[in-house]
Amino acid sequence: MSRKKSYRSKVRILADMMRAIQNGGDEGTGPTRILYSANLSHDRLTQYIEELLEKGLIRVVEQNGSSRAYVLTAKGMEFLREFTKIERFSQAFGIDI
């Protein structure tokens, strides 16, 4: 989106994180990449990753032994599809979410 936004809703932040994770594919996406892609502070990132894990929208995959990476679950993919529909609908009426 080309518009500048001063405020992102929580659901938008979660969706941005999930998109970053989706872009990582089956190998998973590490926290640093999610942090930069979703433009978050470290504390916020930790908090929201916990929330996504709790809700079963993402899961942890091991990458190179110790480092953690995340992939979307089927529920997460479904959520992202629904969010994309709602995002298009809202944007069509000029409503930012």
């Binding site: 809703s9 629904e82 969010f83 709602i86 809202s90 409503i95 930012d96 979410i97």
Partner: peptide, 10 residues
Amino acid sequence: AYQLTGEKRL
């Protein structure tokens, strides 16, 4: 969309 986002304009 409102239920998901809580955006009042929706």
